[in-house]
Design a protein around this nucleic acid. Sequence first.
DNA 1: ATGGTAGACCTTCTA
Length: 260
Amino acid sequence: MRIATWNVNSVNARLETVLKWFREAAPDVACLQEIKCVDEKFPREAFESLGYNVSVNGQKTYNGVALLSKTPMEDIRRGLPGDDGDDHARYLEAVISGPKPVRVATIYLPNGNPIGTEKFAYKLAWMARLNAHARELLALEERLVLAGDYNVIPEPADCEDPAAWAGDALFQPETRAAFRGLKWLGLTDAYMQADGAPGGYTFWDYQAGAWQRNNGIRIDHALLSAQAADALAGVVIHRDVRGWDKPSDHVPVVVELADD
DNA sequence: ATGGTAGACCTTCTA
């Protein structure tokens, strides 16, 4: 089973690019982020015609996440628990049915810039809530995949120019510590487990020729429970997609779990 | 050289 995560930076503005990739890569499950539309505006039929079941947690203009699955989804949960006042659409979770079910969450973790503002505080608070929720999910002892745009550069090797990110929310010591805290719960970074090679970037800014200069960062991650990590067969970053027409600034990351 | 680009949407915010 192949599970993809992709921040598409507006599903409607980029629909042809997104569908082209889905036809080529044909993932079994996909976690989308930054769909930038309400549920009613999500191009549901386009994905249904490719054979996907669709679940959406959308929002006007900003954020928004979706789950696509070839098999039906159960136990769908919209929103990250822990703060009823949080109205950002950044989390959606479901159990992917099948002979080897897997619980999958699509995550759009807050950017948090600029540091020293309420936005950075919101990012850290959101990460604390994710930690608490992940702890509860891990107690279920299921195959679990938490995939998405974490907006976290875990290590200096995960960016081309660490000095350039020193003042950025994605690379702050508190941000990196919170990400390590997730792993200390017992979650495995699929990319580091399956590959571990530096330079596996997933994002290149639209500005200042970042793609042409390979000024990238690895911020799209899949964290796996032990039950899922035991089945991990590989991770592929679809780097070439960044060079397509009308690209997202993020590229798809595909995690493969063995089916037996 | 605190610039540059992209999307939603209406004027500026977010990234």
